[in-house]
């Protein structure tokens, strides 16, 4: 299914290009502009070159120290939630009921946290975790654990992590479930005939089939946790002290709180650059995986059955029934 070359297609893409350029390129130019200048107020700017960037990447200055500390915290946070959410999501996806109305019920309940406004997610956990009025905080304290996310660093971290697990594990689970559903029954029958163990089935059949969705899940979760702002801001406000101040929270503090335009702009650019690099790795790996699948499908069509929830069926290449 080769696409035809047609430069007129640009006319169809033009509206998207204009809308996104208006809201992405234009603001970003302002940011670049600010990042090179300093101001004494009154809208008088003067050239500062790469001064802000030097300060930003030098841990001995105030700005650099704050940025690198929040970056470290943010990376640690992302790694922790990936380590919890990905295995948990796989387990939940494997635990989905097979058929009947319970499937729909589980899907709806799983999706529920994903559709709650982010600050309401924060509010829910703020209320739920408070030692005086929240069920969680009350029960923990009654059990003899001194839990208070407002004053204790570790408690604040645990609360933010549990909140994120609550909020986003469903995403990993739903993606894995979609991947699992695309495995044809014949694979399992073959495994049964071979006398494969439960673990072997998981390792040889289910995990490889989930590869693609897992890749998407890991990168979406990494991106979104790397730019997390609203939920921890509502629950802890970045505190106690600065212990849960992530990069976005630090950035908003500098930009909208102190109105330190130059510093905020320099931070924005470095932040954006990190995201762009990760995004590029993701895109390359994903398109390569897609190309590999196509090659595979062409050489041995039987090994590439049509996924149940496929959005991109390629009817000419993929026969519906496999002989596997």
């Amino acid at each position: 299914m080769d696409k035809t070359v047609n430069q007129k297609a640009w006319f169809l893409v033009l509206p998207v290009f204009l809308v996104v350029a208006f809201s992405a390129v234009l603001p970003l130019m302002t940011v670049v502009n600010y990042s090179m200048q300093d101001t004494f107020g009154n809208n008088q700017f003067f050239w500062n070159g790469v001064g802000w960037f030097k300060e930003l990447l030098d841990p001995s200055t105030d700005l650099g120290g704050r940025f690198l500390a929040s970056l470290g915290r943010n990376l640690f946070f992302s790694l922790v939630i990936l380590a919890i959410e990905v295995p948990l999501g796989i387990v939940v996806a494997l635990s989905m009921p097979r058929e009947g109305w319970t499937v729909a019920a589980c899907l709806v309940i799983l999706a529920l946290p994903l559709l709650i406004p982010w600050n309401v997610v924060g509010t829910i956990w703020q209320i739920f975790g408070r030692p005086d009025i929240g069920l969680l905080g009350y029960v923990l304290n009654a059990a003899g654990i001194d839990y208070n996310y407002v004053s204790n660093d570790i408690d604040a971290w645990v609360t933010v992590i549990v909140m994120d697990v609550w909020h986003w594990t469903s995403l990993v689970a739903l993606l894995c479930y979609a991947g699992l559903k695309s495995i044809p029954e014949a694979y399992y029958q073959a495994a049964q005939i071979d006398g494969a163990s439960r673990w072997a089935v998981f390792k040889a059949i289910q995990l490889p089939k989930m590869n693609r969705v897992l890749l998407i899940a890991v990168l979406l979760r990494f991106m979104d946790s790397f730019m997390i702002y609203t939920e921890p801001f509502v629950v802890t406000g970045g505190g106690p002290g600065n212990s849960t101040t992530f990069v976005s929270i630090e950035l908003v503090k500098i930009a909208l709180g102190q109105f330190d335009l130059g510093k905020a702009a320099a931070l924005s650019l470095v932040y954006n650059l990190i995201i762009l690099i990760v995004c590029w790795i993701f895109y390359t790996v994903m398109t390569n995986a897609g190309a590999e699948r196509k090659v595979q499908a062409e050489s041995e069509p039987a090994a590439e059955p049509k996924p149940a929830a496929a959005l991109k069926p390629v009817p000419a290449l993929k026969p519906k029934e496999g002989v596997a």
């Binding site: 070359v5 047609n6 992405a24 702002y229 909208l256 924005s268 932040y271 954006n272 762009l276």
Partner: peptide
Amino acid sequence: YRFLGDKHLFFWLLSNRMAPAAVYALP
């Protein structure tokens, strides 16, 4: 269709989906 810069454009769109809102708040 395939057209000049289609893959780059597609990637650029994706990168905007991932851009942190905090960066854009002030501009």
